[in-house]
């Protein structure tokens, strides 16, 4: 056994050395104009896009009336400029496929009761049904906090998390490799076009929600309560194929997660009068028109509930 452990130790040391050397080489040797590492696997995300810009524009020392957080649903659907028209200061920290597993570490790294008296967190069924990998790969490379990146990588419980973190620590790019033409400012992205097609029928049965995403949703609720951040959960309009049965899984889960917390869930999924053809950029996301209409309704609701207060 001693011989086995000794050889195992040598093997692990050799693997670690080779791993760091290979990673460093691929981070610094360009292929077709970019470091080779970005071609090695699809989760090695290039630095850039709206997440890079958004998280550098956000001022953790600033004071916002509301911060919005969530996936692309959030950064395409919740318009901080519409909130500003109503006299409030808001910022959108949504990012691609950001799920509760990632959101938890972002809240922990960036938000407190001073910069964020109100946190509006977008949630929808699919974000609780899928693994966190896609959102994690974007955030680990593109937001500035090492602590948040390490937390997300660790929580994945996946070797890919270790790879992403190693890339972040070895690359440390000073500039993004590309920008986002959709980025408007205040964390918001916008698209003017619409899908112009009919939505399909809703699926027969909702998919099960993942245990890790439910766990981190509950952790976010706890963390906000500890930090004195007022939390509101929200879902924006959905096209026909995402309503009804598709939405039931989350509707069954949320009352249990929110029990005793006093946190409201503002569900606009099935709001009356949703225009499937003209309010959506694609099957999942609101376009500029849809985002404006939705944000106005959201602000109306938050004001009616007494959740929005201007710090100005």
């Amino acid at each position: 056994m001693g011989r086995f452990l000794k050889r195992g130790g040598v093997f692990l040391a050799a693997t670690t050395m080779l791993y760091v050397a290979a990673m460093a080489l691929m981070v610094h040797v360009p292929v077709l104009g970019e470091p080779a590492i970005y071609r090695a696997n699809d989760y090695f995300i290039r630095p850039g896009g709206s997440t890079w810009t958004r998280y550098r524009e956000f001022d953790p020392k600033g004071r916002y009336d509301a911060v919005i957080i969530g996936s692309s649903h959030a950064y395409l659907g919740y318009d901080p400029y519409v909130v500003a028209e109503r006299g409030y200061r808001a910022f959108n920290l949504g990012s691609d496929a950001q799920s509760p597993l990632c959101t938890y570490w972002l809240v922990k790294a960036y938000l407190d009761s001073v910069n964020t008296p109100l946190l509006i967190m977008d949630l929808f069924d699919e974000i609780l049904q899928g693994e966190a990998l896609e959102g994690a790969s974007d955030l680990i490379q593109n937001q500035p906090s090492d602590a948040a990146a390490a937390g997300i990588a660790w929580s994945l419980h996946d070797l890919r998390g270790m790879n992403m973190l190693a890339l972040r620590l070895l690359a440390r790019p000073e500039r993004p490799l590309y920008g986002s033409p959709l980025y408007k400012g205040l964390g918001f992205c916008t698209t003017g076009d619409s899908i112009k097609t009919e939505a399909g029928p809703p699926p027969a049965d909702p998919m099960p929600l993942r245990a890790d995403q439910k766990h981190f949703t509950e952790q976010i609720i706890r963390l906000c309560s500890e930090r004195g951040i007022k939390l509101v959960l929200s879902s924006h309009f959905e096209r026909r194929d995402k309503r009804g049965r598709a939405h039931e899984g989350m509707l069954r889960y949320l009352p249990k997660a929110l029990a005793g917390s006093g946190i409201p869930y503002l569900d606009f999924t099935n709001a009356p009068g949703i225009d499937d053809r003209n309010w959506f950029e694609d099957n999942n996301h609101l376009n500029a028109t849809g985002a404006r209409i939705f944000t106005e309704q959201l602000v109306d609701t938050l004001e009616a509930l007494g959740y929005l207060h201007s710090l100005k």
Binding site: R7, A22, L159
Partner: peptide, 21 residues
């Protein structure tokens, strides 16, 4: 010896970096 260890370590590093998990 060392070359054998390095050859299999390289396989594992190949899995870590290029593996489709």
């Amino acid at each position: 010896g060392l070359w054998g260890t390095m050859a299999y370590a390289a396989l594992l590093v190949g899995i870590l970096l290029f593996g489709y998990f």
